[in-house]
Each structure stands twice: as structure tokens, then as C-alpha cells.
Write a protein that binds this DNA or RNA. Structure first.
Lengths: 213, 213
DNA sequence: AGAGATTACGAGTGATTGCTCGCATTCGTC
DNA sequence: GACGAATGCGAGCAATCACTCGTAATCTCT
């Protein structure tokens, strides 16, 4: 997933391994296949052999690139976490004087929804509760960062809100968002814009209630 | 879980079996243990031997009362579905002239939250995505009924809302509710009232936005 | 072309786990 | 107390699955 030039690639993990272009392609194939199978069957029910078969590769080849099943999920999760971090970045530079919350949410939610529809395994690994091992190491920081972003956004539009309320408000917002995403991901293509608007309204409605009682 | 008198109990499934009081007790023990282990480890990672051990019973005894692992989860799920149906019943008899939405939600959400905190496995089986086999047969109808209840409630308070909006509104409400529940279930006891209020505000805020755009 | 490394294969292995079976114990009833 | 039925046990079976290994094909570089 990371395109590394021959010169600078010296991470401790893959130092002794010289990888050919074919190998990089196989890794991409395997991760794509893994995403599909995880999305269909969930983490626990997916077998490594199924991933290999889906990628058109033997089980032995799979284990040439990944030490174990966990590592496959972790590699996927890392890609997802990076992507989401990028997609969530716009929230960090919102100017409350120039842009309303409605506008900010309206423009940023679309790409997020699109990403999750293209990568349904992301929800399986991140919001589906029991994902073991190294995936949590990616999920927890991502969630913490997202929480912080929401909290900062809220503070921006409601400076006088008490910190405790801000804290819980961000947590509830994130939880509700994670709850509705599966609905949007599994819906028909044609209903996505409508559902995205409803998701925006859900968050906006909550924000309004947070800001003025 | 269902207390059946000796006279009327003639379901096709357990007809030929005469069960002693000891057996009923064992079933209750097993289901309680199953609830704990499912809540801790998720469905897939739970072993039948772990359930038996937790109940202080041998694996063989477990299989005297349940034909397979699925049946244990299904029995638990049936109990949960029945309980939730009862807890959700108040929504069917709300009078919009006498009670505001805020009051209706405020009084009904508390018991629901309490139930889920006492039975964390309920969320594992119902909202945690990949639960196999017979559990879905209980989950799908329950969700459909809940969806219908929310939709009816919305229609009561907003008679002029177009049906399509009503449909999606109920779906989004249910999804958001399911998303926030885990947060409330895992929170410390002392923060439950505050979080329940936030959950109520989330739904109310969305309803307000639905009702007058 | 030839050497050395990487890639690819797929049958096989060891560990896990859902589940069974034969037998011992306890209960309900007379 | 005695008999049949229900309960209880736990070692073990069979199937699944993550993972390995010996070997062969293919690439890179000279």
C-alpha cells in the first residue's frame, strides 16, 4: 500500500527483503481479496485459504507476504486508518466565521460515505466489535484522533459549552455516526444521497440541541 | 427462560422430553454463563467448553440441553428479543396530545439502557454484525418491529411527513440508537444518566430536524 | 546464458474445537 | 428399596483451519 522507492525504504520490518514488482502486485491482490472476504464473512469466519483462493494464489504464497492472518487484517486496517485520517483532515481547518456547521458536514460527509461504500471491510474491522490483536492498535488511535477532531469542531462552534458536555457530545456523535454508517453502506446506490443528508441532519440536530438549551 | 406449566407445554421441539427441576436450573445456569462468555469474547471466539466450564458443568451435560452452539445463542436471543419487545411496548400507546416526544423518550430510554447494561451479550448478538444461523431469525423480526414502532411514533407526531422520509427517518433513528448503546453499556455506572440524556437529545434533535425543515 | 534470489505451489501438520458416547450418579415414583 | 428415566461426566473423535516445507518455476543482473 505504501509505494517505497528503492533508496529510502529501510524500515526495520522489511529490511532484509528485496521485493520484486510482482511481489508488490501480489500484496495488492491479496489485500483486495482480503477486503472482499472480510466484508462478506467477518473477520473470524474468514479463512486464510479463502483469501488466497479469492486472490487466485496458493496458501503458501500468501504466507510469503504476511506472517499470519492478523497481519493481513492489520495491513488492511493501516490503509483504512490512513485513508480516513486524510478524509477527516478538512474538519481541522474549518473557519466558523466563514462556514456553517451544515456546510462543513454537507461537504465532508459525502467522501466519507463513498469511501466506506468502496471499502466495506473497513466497518467490519473497525466498528464490528471483536477484532483481535494488532487491529486494535490501529483502531484505538484513529478513534481517539477522530474524537478529538469532533470535540475541537464542537468547541469551535460552541466556545461556552462546558468541557464535560463537549467530551460526551463528541463521543455520542462518533458513536451515532458509526451506527448509521452500516445503513448507508448497505443501501442501494440511488438512496445514498438521501441517506447521507439524513446522517448530516442527525448530527446537526444533535449539535443544535447541544448548543442551546 | 419460559416457565411452562406441565399441562400446556407441548411444543413440537421438546415434546418427548420430561424435564426435571434440576434440568431447568441447569439450562438457566448455562444461559447465564453463555451470556457472560459471549459478552466477553464475542460469538465466534466463545467455545462451548468455555460456556460449560463457566456454568460449572461438563461439555456433555451442555449438549444434553442444547443441540449445538447456535442453539445456545438462539435461546439467549429469544429471551432478549422477548424482553426488548416488552420494553418497547410503551411506544405503541403514546398519546401525542398528552405527552411530548421528549417525555416519552425520557421515560422509556432508562429501562432500555438498564436492560442492555445488565445483558451486554444482547448487543453482541444483535448489533455486532456477523452472528450466524438461527440468531438472525430472531433479530430480523425484532428489528422490523422496532422499526415499525419508531415509524408509527414519528407518524403520530408528524402526520404530514412524506412516507419516504418517515421510512428513512425510522431507519436512521434505529441505527443511531444501536450505535450509541454500546457507549452507554460500557460506560461507568455514574455516567449512565448523563449519557442516557445525551442519547435522548440525539434522537430528539434528529426528530426536530425531521419535523420542520 | 548462468547464478542467485524471489516467487509460487499445494499437500501436509499440529492445534483447536464442536460435538459424541459409554458409563456412573441422582431423581421421581411405586 | 427398587426400577426406569433424567442428569452428569470427561476422554476422545472428526473436522476445520492457520500455518509449514520441500520443491519447482520465474525473475534480476551480470
Amino acid at each position: 500500500m505504501t509505494a517505497e522507492t528503492a533508496e529510502n525504504a529501510e524500515t526495520a520490518a522489511d529490511r532484509p527483503r528485496k521485493r520484486q514488482a510482482r511481489g508488490e502486485r501480489r500484496i495488492a491482490q491479496l489485500l483486495e481479496a482480503a477486503g472482499k472476504v472480510f466484508a462478506e464473512s467477518g473477520y473470524a469466519a474468514t479463512t486464510t485459504n479463502a483469501i488466497a483462493a479469492r486472490a487466485g494464489v496458493s496458501p503458501g504464497s500468501l504466507y510469503q507476504y504476511f506472517p499470519n492472518k492478523d497481519a493481513i487484517a492489520a495491513a488492511l486496517a493501516e490503509f483504512y486508518a490512513d485513508s480516513l485520517d486524510t478524509l477527516l483532515a478538512p474538519f481541522a481547518v474549518v473557519d466558523p466565521a466563514a462556514v456553517t456547521l451544515e456546510e462543513a458536514l454537507g461537504s465532508s460527509l459525502g467522501p466519507l460515505v463513498a469511501f466506506h461504500r468502496e471499502n466495506p471491510a473497513c466497518l467490519v474491522l473497525f466498528v464490528g466489535g471483536h477484532t483481535p490483536g494488532h487491529v486494535m492498535d490501529l483502531q484505538a488511535p484513529l478513534m481517539a484522533r477522530t474524537h478529538a477532531r469532533i470535540q475541537a469542531l464542537l468547541a469551535l462552534y460552541a466556545p461556552e459549552l462546558p468541557p464535560a458536555r463537549l467530551e460526551w457530545g463528541a463521543a455520542v456523535t462518533l458513536a451515532a455516526y458509526k451506527g448509521v454508517l452500516p445503513l448507508v453502506v448497505e443501501a442501494d446506490e440511488e438512496q445514498v444521497p438521501e441517506l447521507t443528508r439524513e446522517l448530516r441532519d442527525l448530527l446537526l440536530g444533535y449539535f443544535e440541541r447541544l448548543l442551546r438549551p
